[in-house]
Structures are given as structure tokens and as C-alpha cells.
Design a protein around this nucleic acid. Structure first.
Lengths: 195, 195
DNA sequence: GGAAGTCGTTCCGTAAACGGAACGGTCGTG
DNA sequence: CACGACCGTTCCGTTTACGGAACGACTTCC
């Protein structure tokens, strides 16, 4: 930023914004009107050609009735990475971490590329994984007995054995993964890196 | 903003920023250097006299190793709610929205107050809810046949009938709720407001 | 098929966020 | 008690995000 003239912002924000707007059936003009900002601002934002101010982001998030973090991703990442992790077939993004006295939960969004099967090594005993399929068909679970789930279905398994993730049907799959780790040992994020 | 010349941003952001910076024993100059922004920018921000861009906020949050939401508070847009919705027993925060051609998924974080049971009216046919318990024990599902789940367990139900949410055992419960809405009708956010 | 409405994009002048430099104040140090 | 190092603030020229207006494309209605 600053001195070189180029200042683009993460284009994912623009895609997010457009997705949320269209999910609510709002036109760009209508959203701009409700948020009290110019159409040029919304348009530029969706195209990733503007670097919005906080005030603008607040106004738009409020008009969409979402927290600002739904637009900025903002997955709590210190250095900017650690947010999204790429495996051979799975791209996982950390959404939230819940820490309870004896348990840690981590919530990931998974994108599973079609045609490849990804194997993850065993986690420590007691770790369980819960997967909700959002799009496509997913085969996941213990390597020797994986389960299959379509949109809106769940798969759960104890992940103290090697397990796999794959998208079936030649279509990229989309899922929410909740990892439950007893104790307060190392973050499951490390493990999810290979997940 | 816009045309009237005054543009102040919430002074709480400045206080948060100064607090986080001092908690880390960083001088204003040092923070500015690490974040790669001007001292004038940090100073103005702490005094609430600037309306920062997202890029600036990212840089500073990264230098402090905190998620941006730690600076912006963000728990609900200007109006105070909108992002977080409060029912009689349930406080729900929208985490993500996934839109597929024929279906919309919305992911919520739920806090369920102990001792009260909240009833939600029927959603349109085809809507299903999937709940993962993170903390406490939750009774949820169709009003005439609710199910019970503890940490790490799931409950799913078709929500085209009245349904309930309650925390058992006198302890506040914590859960992740995924709502699947077929078609591209109105946002499930409206419905979740009473959920 | 013209008028009126809405859509999303682009152009443009203005307001303001930006980084760098200059400033005064405070602290150790020789 | 000069001197330097650092602090946080203020000033300033440049860059750019802003909203309004104009635009072409598309629908709908008469």
C-alpha cells in the first residue's frame, strides 16, 4: 500500500459480499441504498478494486445483517496465514475455536477437490470429527471403513486411526468439519493441516 | 460520513487498540514500524480521529497477532444487534452463509441459556437443522419429540414443524447450528431470529 | 415501439486516509 | 548540562475512497 500506487484488497471479500447479497435477493442498488453508501462503492468492493474503510464495512455488514467478520473472513489468524491450509485434496479454513475446560473444538470449512483421496494420519485417542456436507458428496471416515454423505448429512468418526477424505461424483465438495479434541494439548490446527 | 465532513469512528476501537498495544509493551512507533504503517495513522486511530481502511486494520491486527474482530469488537453492527440475535433462551450469531444453486446453508453459533425453553415456529417445508453440541447438554428438535445431545454429539431434524431449544443440567450450553434451506427464498436469517 | 423503471458500471470532483517529515517533550548517558 | 535516542503529536503533499451523476443494457407496461 502507501507508496506504490497499487492497493487492492483480498478479492475473496468481494466474492463473499456478492454471495451474501445475492443470497438475500438484493440488487446492488438496493443494498447500497439500505447501507447508505454509493453504488460505486458497493460495485468497487465486489470487484476488489477498493480498499474500504471500516465505516463502509460496518454499514454494509449491518445492511446484510451479518457480523463484519462474515465479510472479512478474519479467521483469527496472527500472521495472515494459518487461516487456510491446503492438503493434497482438501483446502480447510479455520472458522472458530471453542475452548472448554477439558475440551477444544475447532470448526473448519472444507473444500474437497474431486478425483483425489486424501489420507490423514491418526490423531491422539479421544479426538472425534464431525462433518456436515454442504455441497457434493463426501466419502470420509476411518480409512478401513469410510462413510458417505450428501448435502445436509452428517458423518462422525473417532479419528484415532488413519482416515480419509474424498469428493465423489467428480464434483468439488464443500463441508463443515468440527474437530473435538479432549485435553488442552496442541492445537488441532496442526493436525488439520494434513487433514 | 460522506458529505457532511464529520467522519469519526467508534472511539472504543482506539481504546482497544491502545490497550492491546500497551499490553504487549509496544510503543506507538514500534507498532507502526512492525505493521508497516505511518505513526500518524496509529496515533490518529488511537484517538478515534481516523476512519481506517481494511488494509490498515489488517496490518495492525497482524502486528498485534490478534484477529481483526479483537479491534473492532464487531459483536453486532452499529445498530447494536443485527449480527447477533437474541431470543428468549438462545443467542445466535451468524458465522457463515453458503449458497449453492438450489440450496442455502447458514451456520450459526448458539448460546443457550439454562432454565428456559425456547420454541421456534415451523419453517417452510424442506428446511432442516443440524446441531452440534460444543458445551453442556442440549435438548432440541421437534416440539413433540425433542432429542438430547451432549458435547460432540449431533441432533438433526426437519424444521417444518414447531421445534424447541433448551439447555439441560442448569448449565449454559454452546452449539453450532447449520440450517439448510432449499430454494432461494427469503434468508433463513429472518427465521433464525426467532429460533 | 416509445416511455419509464431498474440493473450494474464508469466517470468525476471532493473529502479524507495515507506515509514522511518536522516538532516538542522526556529520558539516560558522557 | 549538552547530546542523542526515543517517545507521541502535528503538519503537509499525495493518493485514493467516497457519493452523485451519467451511462448503456435490459424489462415491463401502455
Amino acid at each position: 500500500m502507501g507508496t506504490d500506487g497499487t492497493s487492492r484488497i483480498d478479492p475473496a471479500i468481494g466474492r463473499r459480499l456478492r454471495g451474501l447479497r445475492e443470497a438475500r435477493g438484493l440488487s446492488l442498488s438496493e443494498l447500497a441504498r439500505r447501507a447508505g453508501v454509493g453504488k460505486a462503492t458497493v460495485s468497487g468492493l465486489e470487484h476488489g478494486t477498493r480498499n474500504p474503510t471500516l465505516e463502509t464495512m460496518y454499514a454494509i455488514a449491518a445492511a446484510l445483517s451479518v457480523p463484519m467478520s462474515a465479510l472479512t473472513l478474519d479467521p483469527g489468524a496472527p500472521a495472515g496465514e494459518a487461516a487456510t491450509v491446503r492438503g493434497t485434496a482438501v483446502v480447510s479454513t479455520l472458522l472458530e475455536v471453542f475452548r472448554e475446560p477439558g475440551v477444544t473444538y475447532e470448526l473448519f470449512r472444507l473444500r474437497i477437490i474431486a478425483g483425489v483421496e486424501q489420507t490423514s494420519p491418526a490423531h491422539p485417542p479421544g479426538v472425534t470429527e464431525h462433518l456436515s456436507v454442504v455441497r457434493g458428496t463426501v466419502k470420509a471416515g476411518p480409512a478401513d471403513a469410510p462413510l458417505t454423505a450428501g448435502p445436509g448429512e452428517h458423518v462422525s468418526w473417532a479419528s484415532d486411526v488413519p482416515h480419509v477424505y474424498a469428493a465423489l461424483g467428480g464434483e468439488e465438495a464443500h463441508a463443515i468439519l468440527l474437530i473435538r479434541t479432549p485435553g488442552q494439548g496442541t492445537s488441532a490446527g496442526e493436525q488439520a493441516a494434513q487433514a
